[in-house]
């Protein structure tokens, strides 16, 4: 039998959600007419050899590019500032809201290398209680030593790096059990 009533659902709108969970809704079919606050105008995407791509809105030019994308997540660089959005359908937006209310119960925090470099020194040890902001290790990158601080208070669960070791961006360095 065929699922008589259900068929691929038409999506009526898409929602761009930023890192702070602020949402920007856009109706489908998608239009070039954009209203922001009380300003409204037609959006144009222009491209030329000299400037590359830019947006033209209300007679102002905004250089724009996609810095990175991963599935439905886009990092857009507009006028030199980057913005992160995930593009959600009404269904996935609901899911996002649900998961956000749930994620308060997160137990572990993984500290990953913010940039490639070399571990100069590990300042903490496994099992030690730490407070947010406490320096955990020193990462040397671009000839500068960077202090990597604890993003949360808690306890060091596991340290994955040794001094002298090289790390790549996003390499797991320290696991922290969140707690007071």
């Amino acid at each position: 039998m065929i699922f008589g009533k259900s068929s691929k659902k038409e999506i009526k709108k898409l929602i761009a959600v930023n890192a702070k969970r602020k949402k920007f809704e856009f109706p489908i079919p998608f239009t070039d007419e954009l209203k922001i606050g009380d300003r409204q105008g037609e959006m144009k995407i222009k491209e030329d050899d000299k400037h590359g791509t830019y947006l033209l809105w209300k007679n102002k030019k905004y250089p724009v590019e996609v810095l990175s994308k991963n599935q439905n997540r886009y990092e857009i660089l507009l006028n030199g500032v980057s913005y992160n959005f995930s593009i959600e359908t009404p269904t996935s937006y609901k899911r996002l809201k649900y998961l956000n209310t749930k994620s308060g119960s997160k137990k572990n925090e993984n500290l990953e290398a913010p940039m490639p470099g070399k571990i100069v020194e590990v300042l903490t040890e496994e099992g030690r209680e730490i407070r947010a902001g406490e320096p955990l290790l020193i990462l040397e990158a671009m000839k500068m030593q960077n202090e990597i601080q604890a993003p949360v208070s808690g306890k060091v669960k596991k340290i994955h790096v040794k001094s002298g070791e090289s790390v790549l961006k996003d390499d797991l360095m320290v696991e922290i059990i969140i707690g007071k």
Partner: peptide, 13 residues
């Protein structure tokens, strides 16, 4: 500008 970027991201999608 953020709203413009959101529009652009959605268009890319």
């Amino acid at each position: 500008e953020e709203a413009l970027a959101a529009w652009f991201a959605t268009l890319q999608y």
